[in-house]
């Protein structure tokens, strides 16, 4: 008993060291990433958007959602000193809406990515470690999921969910459904990558010795395998974030994400599309905000990848 405890303490310590190593590596990776031009620009852009996401709603000069009958009189006016980016179809300040809109897309995409990566990592590791028939069945299932283009899956899931779920969730059902969709959409591809990483770890000595010690599969998967594939997980996550942003924005554009009047960039573009010829700023501003965010994420990802010395072609997985 005592020996077992000791054993597990040792391995826990070992795992912690590995984890620390991994986080150190990640920190070093970020600093290397910041040495490249693209990494620096990307980091600045992402940091700016994160700042907006956190503090944006309290910085806006006008309410991003409410409008009065006074506002309606100034609908679709061009940029001016009072309204730097003009007003939209309801006379709301476009700048305020763009600034406030950073929050929903960022938290939805980030949490969605985190969910997808977590699910994919758990499925991939477990399937890869256990192997055999279980592995085959799981990977068949993954193949089936891979047969759905992400957007198709999203359309099906969100439509199913919006009316099935009776309870109100904060901040909205749609937001959580988009998160779940992103999670489901990213899980299969991610689990494949993680599985191959886990397969590479499985025959290594420390895993085998843990096995001979009689550790449970659960323990080995989370304490021995996981810490060693953290870099792979990190790169996966950084690649997927930009996909998640694009998917979230696309769903917003189709009217399936966050619902009005919440400011959402995709939704704003679609709302103001009809005024494109008379008031292009109302649709252009959120579009540009969207573009700068994704460009920032992509630049940062490029930097991270350069730091990790992974070729771009990894993206194809």
């Amino acid at each position: 008993m005592a020996i077992e405890e000791l054993d597990s303490q040792i391995t826990t310590g070992g795992a912690n060291a590995l984890l620390k190593g991994a986080s150190r590596k990640a920190r070093r990776g970020l600093s290397i990433a910041l040495r490249t031009n693209s990494g620096r620009i990307g980091f600045a852009l992402v940091a700016f958007h994160l700042f907006l996401a956190i503090f944006g709603p309290s910085l806006t000069p006008y309410s991003p959602t409410d409008f009065t009958s006074e506002d309606l009189k100034i609908r679709l006016t061009g940029p001016s000193m009072e309204h730097l980016l003009g007003t939209d179809g309801f006379g709301r300040d476009v700048l305020s809406r763009v600034v406030a809109g950073a929050r929903s897309i960022i938290w939805i995409s980030f949490i969605g990515t985190a969910l997808g990566i977590t699910l994919g990592t758990i499925v991939g590791m477990t399937s890869g470690y256990i192997g055999g028939k279980t592995d085959q069945v799981v990977m068949r299932g993954v193949d089936v999921f891979l047969a759905f283009p992400g957007l198709l899956l999203a359309l099906l899931v969100i439509n199913l969910g919006v009316q099935r779920i009776g309870i109100d969730l904060w901040p909205s059902k749609e937001a959580w459904l988009v998160i779940i969709t992103i999670g489901i959409a990213f899980m299969p591809a991610n689990s494949r990558v993680i599985r191959s990483a886990a397969l590479a770890i499985k025959p290594l000595e420390f895993v085998q010795s843990a096995r001979l010690r009689g550790e449970s599969s659960f323990y080995i998967i989370f304490r021995e395998v996981l810490p060693n594939i953290i870099p792979v997980v990190a790169v996966e996550a950084s690649i997927r974030v930009s996909f998640a942003l694009l998917l979230t924005a696309g769903l917003g554009f189709l009217g399936l994400g966050v619902q009005p009047p919440t400011p959402d960039w995709g939704l704003m573009v679609s709302e103001n599309r009809e005024f494109l010829s008379i008031a292009p700023w109302a649709a252009l501003a959120p579009a540009m905000a969207m573009a700068s965010l994704v460009v920032g994420v992509n630049l940062l990802t490029d930097g991270v990848r350069e730091a990790a010395q992974l070729p771009i072609s990894q993206e194809a997985s």
């Binding site: 930009s242 694009l246 924005a249 696309g250 554009f253 995709g266 573009v269 679609s270 599309r273 494109l276 649709a283 252009l284 579009a287 969207m290 573009a291 994704v294 460009v295 994420v297 992509n298």
Partner: peptide, 12 residues
């Protein structure tokens, strides 16, 4: 820049 633009932004 192009791959960072969602289709709807490019389209608009």
């Amino acid at each position: 820049l192009t791959i960072s633009l969602p289709e709807f932004v490019t389209g608009i």
